[in-house]
């Protein structure tokens, strides 16, 4: 019988050592990594025939839009739901993202992504979420086209996993948070607080930590031009530094 074979890195809790287990499921056309993991959890028996605890992993939308199911698949950080089994070499090796603390098995704690978004002030300052009885400024279709690319970032963590500078002992906020600054700085009223955001990424853990390896842009499942954003921010920061030197504020 044709099978799909997996090697999965297991870890029972954050403090216990990792170990590997192998599983096989019957081949079926169209399986993705999440649908295959669902088959395994229904009947978690290893290739050796041992009954083990089901594999824990995170998933939700299964349409590659929520960002939940990131993991390292055959050495590459990807969304498990949109990774079709037929495109992979077997045995398929599944590991948790290595740049975040493991919770259990393939689940990791990505809360740092969201605290970094706070650090770089990735929001537009509005007086309140009420109606102000007037429209917001217009946006040119060209500017929209560029901005829309960045607004699809789902905080999945793949770019951070691939980045040599991002790590659990480093402060670097990583490519996604930088791209968020690029997006917010381009908003018609978001520009008003550009200086604050630039200062946030001029501090430790900011843009200067980028080593320009360009791995991020290669792994982003949404094909976000992260390195373009980083380049643009470099120019914005140069201007900001000159303004800061001359004592001018916006």
């Amino acid at each position: 019988m044709k099978t799909i074979d997996f090697q999965i890195r297991r870890q029972d809790d954050p403090y216990s050592p990792p170990y590997w287990q192998s599983f096989s499921i019957p081949y079926r056309n169209g399986h993705n990594v999440v649908s295959a993991l669902m088959i395994i959890r229904e009947n978690p028996i290893t290739q050796e025939g041992h009954h083990v605890d089901p594999v824990a992993w995170e998933f939700n939308c299964m349409e590659e839009v929520c960002g939940a199911c990131s993991m390292v698949i055959n050495g590459h950080p990807r969304q498990a739901c949109s990774t079709l089994v037929d495109t992979l070499e077997q045995p398929i090796r599944l590991e948790p993202l290595s740049k975040f603390p493991v919770i259990r098995d393939l689940m990791v704690d990505r809360s740092r992504i969201f605290s970094d978004l706070k650090k770089v002030r990735a929001w537009i300052e509005i007086d309140g979420a009420w109606d102000i009885h007037q429209g917001a400024p217009r946006v040119s279709p060209e500017a929209w086209k560029d901005n829309y690319l960045y607004s699809r970032c789902m905080s999945c963590g793949c770019c951070m996993e691939a980045c040599p500078q991002y790590g659990d002992t480093e402060d670097f906020v990583g490519p996604a948070s930088l791209a968020a600054v690029r997006l917010m700085n381009a908003h018609p009223t978001g520009q008003y607080h550009k200086t604050q955001r630039l200062h946030a990424i001029m501090a430790e853990g900011g843009l200067s930590d980028c080593g320009n390896a360009q791995n991020c842009v290669r792994v982003c499942p949404k094909e976000i031009p992260l390195t373009t954003a980083i380049g643009e921010l470099g120019r914005q920061i140069t201007l900001q530094m000159m303004k800061d030197l001359l004592g001018k504020s916006e």
């Binding site: 102000i132 279709p141 929209w144």
Partner: peptide
């Protein structure tokens, strides 16, 4: 009745709505 105002609030929050040639 409140839908247009709600959309404008989303715009203010930074939502990237698709645009016409005039920027609407």
């Amino acid at each position: 009745e409140e839908a247009p105002g709600l959309i404008h609030t989303f715009e203010r929050m930074g939502v990237t709505f698709s645009r016409t040639a005039e920027g609407l």
